[in-house]
């Protein structure tokens, strides 16, 4: 589904990704781990098309087509979803209205009719249960005054409603207590399917106790330095990132 080849990306001339190669097939869950500053979040944002980062070399193919010339909304319309590390607040815009605008934008791009309000509400109510999101939050402004846990659950709700092909979760576990983490993980697991791929970016192994990955990649200084099965995450949990940082001395920031 996703094919990343020799990807280099920079911000303001400073190179952050230095040659990433990664292939993710439908139905797979890949974890991207690594110390702070290794480029994990940058990779997530570059895949989503954030223009702050300039792709200087390499290629990203999604279902065989290059993403590099596509705008963020076009990528979303192709089925790429990014669950944000820091979900953005949009004061005055109702959460439900935002979600319905998004649903209908995606449907329009696919040449489908707009979802009527009743069907939309049914869909949202059903998915809100999945992440245990209080319906009151649907009527509030997008993420405005939400707690950290509520914001993350709201991200997963959006993901569930928009039904993307590729889900990228950027440090979805950060700032969550163990109960919230379980709830979020339950929501994510419910979305696992043979047609859908997931990239889970995380600093800690604990999320992977709940969302079991097929593959684990360790990112350091803008490169994948090790890949393996889920045991690799456990190994990291024991030994920390010190061995990597030692190896790539002076890297990261």
């Amino acid at each position: 589904m996703l094919e990343i080849r020799d990807l280099h990306a920079a911000v303001e001339g400073h190179e952050i990704l230095r040659g990433i190669d990664l292939s993710v097939a439908a139905g797979e869950v890949h974890a991207i781990m690594g110390p702070n500053g290794s480029g994990k979040s940058t990779l997530a944002q570059v895949l989503a098309g954030r223009e702050t980062f300039e792709v200087t070399r390499g290629e990203i193919l999604f279902e065989g087509e290059s993403l590099l010339d596509r705008s963020p909304e076009e990528r979303a319309q192709l089925g790429i979803f990014l669950a944000f590390q820091y979900p953005v607040e949009i004061p005055g815009v109702q959460n439900l209205y935002f979600l319905r605008t998004a649903v209908n934008a995606l449907r329009k791009a696919r040449g489908e009719e707009e979802l009527d309000p009743a069907s939309f509400m049914r869909l949202v109510r059903e998915k809100a249960k999945l992440v245990d999101l209080d319906e009151k939050l649907l009527k509030r402004a997008v993420n405005d005054g939400f707690s950290g846990g509520e914001k993350k659950r709201n991200e997963i709700l959006q993901m569930a409603v928009l039904e993307p092909k590729l889900c990228i979760l950027d440090e979805t576990d950060s700032g969550l207590d163990i109960d919230a983490l379980r709830t979020v993980a339950r929501g994510v697991n419910a979305l696992r399917s043979p047609e859908r791929a997931m990239i889970v970016v995380t600093h800690y192994q604990r999320l992977l106790d709940y969302i079991e990955p097929d593959r684990v990649h360790v990112l350091s200084d803008g490169r994948i330095v090790r890949s393996g099965g889920k045991d690799l995450a456990l190994e990291l949990e024991k030994s920390g990132y010190g061995w990597i940082e030692g190896r790539a001395a002076g890297a990261g920031s």
Partner: peptide, 20 residues
Amino acid sequence: FYCQQRGIPVEDAVSMIVSG
């Protein structure tokens, strides 16, 4: 960017944010 990532084109996003 948040709006765009959800599939909403820039001009609609700006309009929505300003309306809010």
